[in-house]
Design a protein around this nucleic acid. Structure first.
Length: 259
DNA sequence: TTGATTGTTACCGG
DNA sequence: TCCGGTAACAATCA
């Protein structure tokens, strides 16, 4: 489900609903964290996003680490408690709200050391104010790998997923197969700033909007995109090519994004 | 029942 | 060592 915006939005929302409260954390359908009681009676200090990782920090310095992977979902609602829907792996219950997490790829309790290891492994998060884009440029500039692949590499920069990859590169007129070391700093900065703006807009509207002047979709599709899964380029009318990059599909207009 | 999916890691071979 | 390919895992929906 998530690109970075989903996680940042959840972090903001959950911080409002849970911080400062004593939580009960359980696992109705255990699988990831052993046992049905994960944490009990600990005070939630804050909820934070790091790229696509969601961190619930407790005053005890324990951190509940969640990564939704491709399929994970979050459902939140007011008390009283309702029956879990589907495969709820984690349930966080505070004073007013209950948050259920279905099908995460990662769900574990970490100590300070493991938390630090995670922070060291993840590149600058485009949506965080403490991000240093120069670190991401340095990695990009010394890599021969295609920019389309580097944008998705969460150790290079964190937050971009498969939809935003195609959309950002199309907006900037950069072919996804351009080698990282062929991207100059000006172009890199434009990509970074566009990514930051688009992700922030997605956080605001809770949907991916990359078309100019786009508004949140009202229908069932929660995206407004230019090239992702499209066949024609909205700018030049030409055909959109689909490139398989490291097992994921990248879409690009060969004319507007020359190699 | 099958296939696809806004993700990630491990492993193998060149 | 780097990089591509493949498989594995997760849950849900069309």
């Amino acid at each position: 489900m998530p690109e970075g915006h989903t996680i940042h939005r959840a972090a903001q929302d959950h911080h409002k609903k849970l911080s400062g409260q004593t939580l009960q954390v359980s696992s109705p359908q255990g699988k990831f964290s052993a046992g049905s009681e994960i944490l009990s009676g600990k005070v939630c200090h804050s909820v934070e996003a790091l790229g696509k990782h969601l961190l619930y920090r407790f005053e005890s310095r324990d951190v509940l680490h969640v990564h939704l992977g491709l399929f994970g979902r979050i459902r939140s609602g007011r008390l009283p408690l309702k029956e879990p829907i589907g495969a709820v792996r984690v349930r966080l219950v505070g004073d007013t709200h209950c948050i259920d997490i279905n099908g995460p790829a990662i769900c574990e309790v970490m100590g300070p050391v493991e938390t630090k290891v995670l922070f060291n492994r993840i590149g600058p998060d485009i949506l965080r104010s403490d991000a240093e884009p120069i670190r991401a440029f340095a990695r990009t500039a010394k890599s021969k790998l295609p920019i389309g692949q580097l944008l998705m590499d969460q150790s290079v920069m964190a937050g971009i997923g498969n939809i935003f990859r195609s959309e950002i590169l199309w907006r900037q007129g950069v072919h996804p197969k351009t080698p990282g070391n062929a991207i100059d700093e000006t172009t890199f900065n434009k990509i970074w700033e566009d990514a930051r703006d688009l992700l922030a807009l997605a956080v605001k509207h809770n949907s991916i909007i990359t078309v100019q002047g786009g508004k949140p979709s009202s229908g069932k599709y929660r995206e407004r995109v230019n090239v992702y899964k499209k066949t024609l380029c909205p700018k030049c009318g030409g055909g959109i090519q689909c490139h398989n990059m490291a097992g994921r599909k990248a879409y690009a207009c060969e004319k507007c994004q020359p190699l």
